[in-house]
Amino acid sequence: MTDTARLLQSRSFIELGARQRARALLDQGSFRELIGPFERMMSPWLPKQGIVTQADDGVVIAKGTIEGQPTVIAAIEGSFQGGSMGEVGGAKIAGALELAAEDNRNGIPTRAVLLLETGGVRLQEANLGLAAIAEIQAAIVDLRQYQPVIAVIAGPVGCFGGMSIAAGLCSYLIVTQEARLGLNGPQVIEQEAGIEEYDSRDRPFIWSLTGGEQRHVTGLVDAYVPDDTETIHAQIRTCFRQGKPALERSRRYAWFLDRLGRLEPEQPIDAVTVRDLYAAGDEGGVK
């Protein structure tokens, strides 16, 4: 079966590759890829280290429309180098967001959707990956002034490292049960802080703290959806219709500082503790 035929039959979003995901979300016939794979804009740094490159460096930039409105989608391919951000892929995302912001300054209401499947910086391009992520973050904050910036973390990779900070800057975050969202990957925490602190092989434990459902009930994301392409599509449309949020999550300094101040220093932490601490429902809440 061809990829196209599979796309038509399947409703799972997670099973789709980055290009198929972007195509599935844009209005039919409106998908147009920028710097597509045949341009072979590939990592200049991986071959120097004996690592095979991918023709699109693991990032698909597609322009098109959603409900007729100009939209750019940046989709990360999680299966290439763990969705890591190198110089080229990072510049594709940052550059696309910069141009979307520029569009808005010129009266064109271009919006952006980020499909995040990433472990963060590509360590083989370390400082250039980090720099690109800083530029992605800068561009999100800029574009967010004009239009909602929506990020979807579907899985299976999740969203980690500097890109989790980028996710935290978005106007709306949509996750599935398969999503994980956290700053530090489990292996890194185990390496830096020890296995008693964080056992990277204890999957239920990791999921209980950083999985999509927990992030939703603690108000750290906006929507929790099943792995279904049409439902994710509908949720994106809903978020766009809501317009910009009154106050982005990353601006709720006072609320979070207040909550962190209520935590007993020696209190052990688990999923329930965080749910109680960040319980939604009060007027200052993050939801």
Partner: peptide, 18 residues
């Protein structure tokens, strides 16, 4: 026309046909 299939993931390959 041209075609792209696969990807550079573990145990896989990317094929560009032109």
């Amino acid at each position: 026309g041209r075609a792209l299939v696969g990807g550079v993931g573990s145990g896989d390959l990317e094929v560009l046909l032109e």
